[in-house]
Nucleic acid binder design. Sequence first.
DNA 1: TTAGGCAGATTAAACGATTAATCACCTTCA
DNA 2: TGAAGGTGATTAATCGTTTAATCTGCCTAA
Lengths: 355, 355
Amino acid sequence: MNRPKPKLSRIAETLGVSVATVSNALSGKGRVSPELVERIRATAAELGYVPSVAGRALRTGRSGVLGLVLPNIANPLFPQIAQAIEHAAAGAGYGVLIANSRGEISTQTEAIGRLIERGVDGIVIVPRRGTRIVEAGCPIAVIDSPSTPGNTVSADHWEGGRRMGAHLRELGHRNVLLIGNNTTSNVQSDRIGGLKAGLGPNAATETLWIERLEAAGGAGCPLGLVEKVRGGVTAIATLSDLTALRALTELQGAGISVPDTVSVTGFDDLIWSSVVTPRLTTMRMDMGSIAEIAVTALVDAIEGDRRGNGGEETSGPVSAPISKVPMELVIRQSTGVAGVGSLKAKNRTEGELAS
Amino acid sequence: MNRPKPKLSRIAETLGVSVATVSNALSGKGRVSPELVERIRATAAELGYVPSVAGRALRTGRSGVLGLVLPNIANPLFPQIAQAIEHAAAGAGYGVLIANSRGEISTQTEAIGRLIERGVDGIVIVPRRGTRIVEAGCPIAVIDSPSTPGNTVSADHWEGGRRMGAHLRELGHRNVLLIGNNTTSNVQSDRIGGLKAGLGPNAATETLWIERLEAAGGAGCPLGLVEKVRGGVTAIATLSDLTALRALTELQGAGISVPDTVSVTGFDDLIWSSVVTPRLTTMRMDMGSIAEIAVTALVDAIEGDRRGNGGEETSGPVSAPISKVPMELVIRQSTGVAGVGSLKAKNRTEGELAS
DNA sequence: TTAGGCAGATTAAACGATTAATCACCTTCA
DNA sequence: TGAAGGTGATTAATCGTTTAATCTGCCTAA
């Protein structure tokens, strides 16, 4: 059991051929007779040969590693993104190096720098809202929103919003409260725009921004939803499942029934959306497709550098053939027909504990 | 602006010295006169020199990259872990390559293999429950539970449970429902054990396992908490915030007040715990310390290979001086004194309940 | 005076893979 | 018979860094 990491030269001397031939056989590039290729493959497998990434990287100038920069690694959406990117990258033969930018814009630049120093071939980045990445010294795939300049691919947030709005309209909701986090996010503006379009011109909407509310009331302060419901709101459409959850518990804690009295919707289909009671109606992103498109575009740019355009190094955002990926409406239990259990009917319905 | 990636030799010829001297000066290893070191440092900075990871890796045999394997990348705890590990690794000068094992045991082995092929110097792994990692061809830091053999470091889940139990006992709870996911997790057994110890011998406890419940009732099925509360349970201690959330909404949806009628506790302090109403009392892990200890132990093993024990390569789980990190009790609004708003009191005010 | 020692540099050999250039040999056709 | 062409393999250079070994003066002590 004394095999100190077999290298090309070991295979070569085992078979009595040159390293170059072994390399050619394994990569299928040079001219090697079919039967020799077969023998080389066999002994390589037998010896458990694993090419040295370092050696290859040094020679070819490419590391086979992609960087992944996320705006806020603690974001509950992160697992989905990371998993999807990792999977897509692995499929294309790339590894994924992570870096977080902790929401700070300076840290984001620094994180990119660290990745470059580590020799990544390309970077997938979900930019901090309001940031625009232009240059970085290597190809970049930007996942933000279709309305962001330089965006490579993302979910079709506007259309997602529109369909969610339509869903509520079809249920008869005409007085809807919209809740977002902050006004500067392109993703959130897209969703809001779509939501309003889907609800149609006959619906009355009001928009609440949590960031503003908390600036006054402190983090985690009540959103004052009970008053809104008393004021006639029959549906609350949030721009994130986290907010939906916050709304849901605030309402339930006040004894307001969801969805009988008021419907609640979210966005993103986060992990808990399907375990809470009532299970959350939400709009899911197809992270798999998004990741696949982003990684493919990136890899094309990386490998195109070597082949096609002689020496013209891509450096900056790449573009993909498809840049908007449809979202999927997941109808569960938190939305219902408007007016079923209006606040007046509340006492009667709540009495039936066993229902 | 024509700087095609300055390398050592460029600095060398700019100053008219040899590459070796430059290398020595920059690494502080050989013998170089202080003033020359200074000059070399200066021109290196001026030229914007960045060492080639590939070249260094090839020569030293070390890549400066750590692998991170997670049992289920979709786990809501993942962001915290990934962020902490990435931060600790960056502090030690290492990058982090991610790999997910999608919960499958075979995928976990395969993920480890891919990391090794990419030349990682060490691996941090949160093993799938029930798995035991013995060998992998490089140093490994295992983050599981103190009662797992081969564990490197983890939170003190038992003590965390004990303190949570004590908290409930002090509030007067003597009839407590425990909810876990599955019986095979060491982490969960530790927490349950501690919980029972903390509640003391005078408390009656019953344990619910979600995995079993769902095997019969389907994923996301009701946990039947209302009946338990009717049966006299005054507190529900869950082994995860996700479960706590599930319990909380199930109770609230049925019109049961938390914490007046029943207290609910979680574990892990996940992102939403502080935004739901009532905010969740939970037990937080110090992921920062855990990650720091894991990475330090790993780096010691990696760099010790080269120096101390000549040629004796560490390969497999490493151990750390401190292996149990205290958890922090976060008391918020979901726990209260037992018996404040018992179901009987509730019945009297709100009228009789059906069935 | 000279051997020894040391500081401060240089030389040169790796590390493992890729690849352009070259070579030896065999066919084939003029 | 000999030149051209093709096939299958080899040679050798190269990627950028590290590091053991070596070299060159110069200072000191015997």
